[in-house]
Amino acid sequence: MDTTRWKRAGILALILNFLFATFPAAAQTGLVGTGEMLAAEARALHMAEVRAGLNREDVRQQMLELGVDPAKVEQRLGGLTAAELQRLAANMKQLPAGAGVIEVVGIVFVVLLILELLDVTDIFTGI
């Protein structure tokens, strides 16, 4: 019971922290941002902000798990829009990560697979 209350208070504090850290324009000045004005669908601005704050925390966690320097995480989060944070929060581990032509292992794997299908090789049993 007590733990839940503390947890709730903690989450609320985090949300408030994110709100003010992420949306200086909307939260502190009462302006409607140009992006919000452009957004066609009707939605509650404050709900969008809360969601963005939660997504931001999610992306922060995933960045740390994926080995980003903790000192750089804040800076990297700072350039992302609410929509981008939402996409990353949902798919950070599946979205295309451009690596480059040096990853030869993968290409070799494809070649091997094709050769395997042609009965030229017999590396993968059970295909």
């Binding site: 960045m63 798990e65 994926l66 080995g67 980003v68 990297r76 350039g79 992302l80 981008e84 996409r87 990353l88 950070m92 581990k93 979205l95 295309p96 990560a97 451009g98 690596a99 480059g100 990853e103």
Partner: peptide, 12 residues
């Protein structure tokens, strides 16, 4: 760069 993904995401 995302070390855990060996790459970079478009959004980043």
């Amino acid at each position: 760069y995302l070390p855990g993904r060996h790459g970079s995401l478009q959004a980043e």
